[in-house]
Amino acid sequence: MSWLQTKPLRAGLQTAVALIYPPRCLGCGTQVESDFGLCGACWRETPFIGGTVCDGCGLPLDGAEDGHRIECDACMDQPRPWRQGRAALLYADRARRLVLALKHGDRSDIARPAGRWLARAARPMLQAETVIAPVPLHWSRLLRRRYNQAALLAQSLAAQTGAACCPDLLIRPHRTPMLDHATAEQRKTILREAISVHPRRQHRMIGRPVLLVDDVMTSGATLTACAEACHAAGAASVDVVVLARVAKDD
């Protein structure tokens, strides 16, 4: 048996590491009690979503749940090609900074706590045999960024829930321009046929529920393209969960 497998020695090592590298807040860097956490101030500045939400996209809604499906105006105007959608955070304040740090700031450490937040939002949607899949990046963008933040989130969510994860279930064979400032209709046009199921992974989703994971939902165009590809390839159902939901489409 390795000495690292004995509890006293492992605990001692963890204590020594904590003394040398004390845990820091993910948001501001101040010292906190445990790794991968937020200090009190950053926690209060992070808009976690709870209460009544839209069943289509997870946007917070006024009023109380009544046992019936509730949707926001956007989801009623443009029905989603997935069963249910949820979001852990609103894309604002500290949450926006955390998402941008994960996406563009090489802060892959944020994915671990984000997996816990995603799990809380996604648990009601998880079914037996659910396969978790991230929104894909084109290889050229992946090469430049060095990682797919959606894949990190999907793997962290899978670790939290025990569900299967297939990081390359979906692929983006055609490079698309950045969508940050595109309208909803422009996003839909750009993404049409831009995402497909990996031909060597399709067997993993046929007849099974798929849970799509992404960092941010704005108009939902990217997730729509992913969901349509999954349905066409034989998925039993599709749900989506994102780390953050933009409160109002651009």
Results as ranks from 00 to 15, higher is better:
Gly220Pro: 01
Lys248Met: 02
Ser219Ile: 02
Cys72Ala: 11
Met217Pro: 00
Met76Ser: 12
Ala133Phe: 08
Ser108Leu: 05
Leu59Met: 11
Met205His: 09
Ala227Arg: 07
Thr218Glu: 03
Glu33Asp: 15
Arg245Ala: 12
Ile70Ser: 15
Ala229Phe: 05
Glu71Val: 12
Leu90Ile: 07
Val242Cys: 03
Val242His: 01
Ala158Cys: 00
Asp106His: 02
His198Ala: 14
Ala87Leu: 01
Arg94Leu: 05
Cys39Ala: 01
Pro60Phe: 08
Leu90Asp: 01
Pro167Leu: 09
Gln127Pro: 02
Glu33Pro: 11
Thr222Asn: 04
Asp215Met: 00
Ala151Trp: 00
Ala194Asn: 05
Ala247Ile: 11
His198Asp: 15
Pro79Gln: 10
Arg200Ile: 15
Gly12Cys: 13
Pro23Ile: 12
Ala88Asp: 07
Ala182Asp: 01
Cys42Glu: 07
His181Thr: 14
Pro81Ser: 07
Val53Phe: 05
Ala18Asp: 01
Ile190His: 01
Ala235Ile: 08
Ala225Val: 03
Ala236Phe: 04
Val53Asn: 06
Leu38Tyr: 11
Asp73Met: 07
Val32Phe: 05
Cys166Glu: 14
Phe36Val: 06
Glu33Trp: 11
His181Ile: 12
Asp73Thr: 15
Trp117Leu: 14
Ser140Arg: 14
His68Phe: 03
Arg144Ile: 13
Ala235Glu: 15
Asp93Leu: 13
Ile171Phe: 09
Trp82Ser: 07
Val240Arg: 10
Leu13Ile: 15
Pro81Phe: 04
Pro167His: 09
Thr224Ile: 03
Arg172Cys: 03
Thr161Arg: 05
Val216Glu: 09
Leu13Pro: 02
Ile190Pro: 07
Leu102Thr: 07
Gly37Trp: 06
Arg44Leu: 11
Val238Cys: 14
Arg94His: 09
Thr222Gly: 04
Gly56Cys: 06
Arg146Val: 03
Trp3Glu: 02
Arg120Thr: 08
Arg44Cys: 02
Thr46Ile: 02
Lys188Val: 14
Asp35Ile: 12
Leu38Ser: 05
Arg144Ser: 14
Asp93Gly: 08
Ala92Thr: 02
Ala184His: 12
Pro173Val: 05
Met76Leu: 14
Ile110Gly: 05
Asp93Ile: 07
Pro8Arg: 00
Asp109Asn: 04
Ile190Ser: 06
Pro22Cys: 10
Leu89Gly: 02
Val17Glu: 14
Pro199Arg: 03
Met178Cys: 15
Cys57Phe: 05
Ala233Thr: 09
